Simulated assay, not measured.
Amino acid sequence: MAKYLVCGGAGYIGSHMCKRLHEAGHEVVVCDDLSTGHLGALQWGLHACGSLEDAAFLRELFATHDFDGVLHFAALSVVAESMRDPQRYYGHNVAATLNLLRVMREFEVSKLVFSSTAAVFGEPLSRVIAEDHPTVPVNPYGLSKLMVEQILRDSARAYGLRAVALRYFNAAGADPSAVIGEAHDPETHLIPKLVRKAAGEGMQVTINGTDYPTEDGTCIRDYVHVNDLAEAHLLALDHLDNAVGMHTFNLGNGTGHSVKQVVDAVQEVTGVALDIPVTGRRPGDPAHLVAGSKRARAVLGWEPRYTKIADIIETAVRWHGTDSFRNWIAEASEAGDAAAETVRFDARQQQRKQG
């Protein structure tokens, strides 16, 4: 049994990771300030409420626990928001990660699995994006993740850090137990928006462009189940037991589904007819984003279990029908505000102590 720090463990993918680590017999400590995460997601391990931007908090956390490694999910991740406020994204995603890496080095913790993104690639040059595809991000969110990847690569060379960066495509679905799942407020992802619209929530959903060079004219994306992502992280931890340096892997099913196909699949799973209006293209939306994940399959031995879009959607539908989901959404704003104030208060107290 090992002890792992999960940064962002109260969030969507992080909470599924905590559950998987617990099932594998590992000890879990979650670092999350709950600004976007959920108290209800904290069902496995201990919780330390704090931010990676607070180096003093991190030092106290590492001094209290003897970690075998770190899984880093804590990041801002809304592309449009990153365009409006890039400094916030560079501060939270890059500078805060530097804090974490410095403290890891100080306490001689050398194993890290980092949550990266397909946004590091920018405009695709091929229908299937392999790991060696050029990385030319087109927004501050993608660039912030690529910056961290470079920092990890340099840290591996200079300090002996062992790191894996996992570049997700479109995370989707929920744990089949329906005890945790996706609950963003506001929601920006297509599948949960469609599922919630089918449930009568009145979500605003549009098809953004029907004139792309695809079979039905709508964008094609690669959807990968959140539990398959968690399994890849567990395999990455095992890989780092024997591998040195920094490694990158794509995580996707390798097959794409168009927006219209996803709409049709949600209608089929829920039995609800959806009237989705069509608007023009959104700036910067590529026609195809499909992962080539050969390296993850060959090196990590990763094989996604959820390969059918209907099966992924079915787990999302099950989760969105629970009282837990409704409670998470209802409490999200209040809990986030309270947690953020707690973090600010703790930081002020720490500054007074140091003064």
Rank of each mutant, 00 (worst) to 15 (best):
E108V: 06
R167C: 06
F114R: 02
A172N: 11
M83R: 09
M203W: 01
R88C: 08
K111V: 12
V128K: 05
L161G: 07
A158R: 15
A174N: 09
S110F: 03
H92K: 13
H72M: 05
P186V: 07
A75R: 02
G173D: 05
M147N: 15
H184M: 12
Y168K: 07
E201T: 08
G217A: 03
A118W: 04
L190S: 05
S115R: 05
S155F: 15
A172E: 07
R167N: 12
I151E: 13
D211L: 12
A74Q: 09
F107W: 00
P124H: 07
V109Y: 01
P186L: 09
G181C: 12
V113P: 04
D154K: 14
R162V: 12
E131W: 03
S77Q: 12
S116I: 00
V103K: 00
L152H: 12
R88P: 04
F107L: 01
L143D: 14
H189C: 12
D132A: 12
D185P: 07
S115T: 13
Y159D: 15
A96L: 01
A74F: 07
I180P: 04
D154R: 15
H133Q: 08
R157E: 11
D185M: 15
S177G: 14
V78W: 06
P137S: 06
C219T: 08
S126P: 01
G91H: 07
S177R: 13
G122I: 09
T117R: 01
A75C: 02
R88N: 10
G160N: 09
T117C: 03
D216Y: 02
N139V: 04
N99H: 01
L190D: 05
K197T: 03
V195N: 06
H92F: 11
L98C: 15
E81N: 13
I151S: 11
P124C: 05
M104F: 10
L125I: 09
P192H: 06
E187G: 09
V79S: 01
P213E: 01
G91W: 06
V179G: 14
N170P: 13
P86R: 01
P176L: 13
S82F: 00
K193R: 10
S110N: 14
L98H: 12
A158P: 06
A95T: 13
H92D: 11
T117D: 07
G181S: 12
V205H: 06
L112I: 06
Y168M: 11
S115G: 04
T188K: 14
A130M: 09
V164C: 15
L194T: 01
T210L: 03
E215P: 05
Q204Y: 06
V79I: 09
N208W: 02
K197L: 14
E182N: 13
R88M: 05
K111G: 10
F121E: 10
K193W: 00
V148P: 04
A130S: 13
Q87A: 14
L194A: 00
Y159R: 15
V136G: 08
L190R: 00
V128I: 15
G200P: 02
Y89M: 06
V148M: 01
S110Q: 13
V94D: 00
E131K: 10
A96K: 06
I129D: 02
G181H: 10
S144T: 08
D154T: 14
A80Q: 06
V164R: 10
V109T: 02
G122P: 03
V148D: 10
R105S: 00
Y159V: 14
T117A: 05
R196K: 09
D85P: 04
L98Y: 08
H72L: 02
